[in-house]
């Protein structure tokens, strides 16, 4: 996993839909599942979702702006954009009549009180991390653990980011032995599928053997 990620953007999904084209689902026969992709701002959640999604990543997004009220702003200057709200999600149809919905969920602490709502119905969470600022992922990992949601860690290997062995990273993240850690390039489709496989395997281990 220490190979340097390819600098090119990941292979686009085979059927990258053209803008404006809506990709519909069959009306019956599918099982829909929800996965949470989380992590700190800028860690690559959108990239991973875009790499995997068969639909253009849809944002429920607007560029939000700061209020222009206040003594500095009374001159009628146009507002400055200050924050972008986005909930990204993507869709991945998996052979066997399964459809995975990947929800990019902010890993910022201000959203934590609301996580139960966000994570409701999810199979598990993929927590993304960046070795250049590993600690940014700690709060969301704490929170996911406290919620008891099964998760795997995907370390997004940004070009130029320092490389570390899985063991080193596991130690610093204080991962439980059974919690998967995968190093990946979120732009790479195989890598990204690998993170989902790791998560699914982990979910499987937590299910009772017999039902």
């Amino acid at each position: 996993m220490d190979s340097v990620p390819s600098p090119e953007p990941a292979t686009a999904p085979a059927a990258e839909p053209r803008p404006g084209q809506v990709r519909y689902l069959p009306a019956t026969g599918q099982t829909l599942m929800k996965l949470i992709i989380t992590g700190p701002f800028g860690v690559g959640k959108t990239t991973l979702i875009r790499t995997l999604s068969e639909i253009p990543t849809l944002h429920t997004e607007e560029v939000m702006t700061r209020s222009s009220v206040g003594h500095d702003d009374l001159k009628g200057l146009p507002e400055k954009a200050t924050t972008t709200v986005a909930v990204d999600f993507g869709r991945l149809t998996v052979p066997g009549d399964l459809v995975l919905y990947l929800f990019g969920t902010p890993g910022q602490e201000r959203f934590f009180p609301l996580w139960q709502d966000i994570a409701r119905g999810a199979l598990g969470a993929l927590v993304m991390a960046d070795t250049r600022r590993l600690a940014d992922s700690f709060p969301v990992m704490d929170m996911v653990e406290e919620e008891g949601l099964p998760y795997a860690v995907a370390v997004n290997r940004f070009p130029g980011a320092p490389a570390h062995s899985d063991d080193t990273l596991r130690k610093h993240l204080d991962l439980a032995p059974q919690t998967p850690l995968v190093q990946c390039d979120a732009r790479n489709r195989r890598d990204s599928i690998g993170t989902l496989i790791a998560l699914a395997e982990h979910v499987l281990t937590r299910l009772p053997e017999d039902d």
């Binding site: 250049r132 600690a135 990992m141 704490d142 653990e145 406290e146 320092p162 080193t168 204080d174 991962l175």
Partner: peptide, 24 residues
């Protein structure tokens, strides 16, 4: 960026004794 010493954290346990079901 320069390789910087990695920070460390302590893992948490679920708030409730019984972890929630796999998927609520």
């Amino acid at each position: 960026t320069e390789a910087v010493p990695l920070p460390s954290r302590r893992r948490r346990s679920p708030k409730t004794a019984a972890a929630r079901p796999v998927a609520a």
